[in-house]
């Protein structure tokens, strides 16, 4: 169930989500927070088993602050995603997988980034991405409207529209939209550079 969306713009990264938590055919909650703040420069949107996802994000939040204290500068978005994916991969290999998908969005010294990782531990960098039962519908909006040179404001609107479209037709998504925009601290390098 769920619709979550991550979008990268030249000015920062955006996450959006619906607010419905499903228990089978029952709406378990209408005010769920699916976008979890890790710190001022990074947030994670979660889909799947809430407990699994929250556990991993909490562990990564702790690790991120420890590493920042240890080495004197914060983890990059990619490093943070790798932390999540390592645990997810180990879970899959030990037949106790974390039933969740994560869209990690944030900014670091290299600019804004959106990464996605899942229970298999696969990591990929994306310009825009969606996950959850509503994602096929959200992708329709994203594919036809995403532009690499979008401003942060335009990315917020696109994120909202994508989730809105999914909520119209996906019974697993609904009850409102959350949007988080993380503005970049540095002048964004070329979009191409982020793809290496």
């Amino acid at each position: 169930m769920t619709t979550i969306v991550g979008i990268m713009s030249k000015e920062g990264a955006v996450l959006s989500s619906d607010k419905r938590a499903s228990k089978g055919f029952f709406i378990g909650s209408k005010i769920t927070q699916k976008i979890l703040k890790v710190d001022d420069t990074l947030a994670v949107a979660i889909a799947g088993q809430v407990s699994d996802a929250e556990y991993l994000v909490n562990a990564v939040r702790a690790e991120r602050s420890l590493v920042t204290l240890q080495r004197g500068y914060p983890l990059t978005v990619k490093e943070t995603t790798k932390l999540i994916s390592n645990v997810a991969y180990q879970g899959m290999k030990s037949y106790q997988p974390y039933f969740a998908e994560f869209i990690v969005a944030g900014v670091d010294a290299l600019g804004p980034h959106v990464y996605v990782t899942d229970m298999s531990g696969a990591v990929s960098a994306e310009d825009f991405v969606s996950s959850g039962s509503g994602s096929p519908i959200a992708y329709g909006v994203l594919e036809s409207n995403y532009k690499p040179e979008m401003t942060l404001e335009q990315a917020k609107v696109l994120g909202t529209n994508a989730v809105q479209a999914a909520m119209e037709r996906d019974p697993g998504s609904g009850n409102g939209i959350d949007v988080v925009a993380i503005p970049s601290l540095v002048i964004a390098p070329e979009v191409q550079q982020r793809r290496n």
Binding site: R71, T76, N86
Partner: peptide
């Protein structure tokens, strides 16, 4: 490298 997919910093 395996844990963070990055180069270790000198302090660490």
């Amino acid at each position: 490298r395996l844990t963070f997919d990055s180069l270790v910093d000198i302090k660490t």
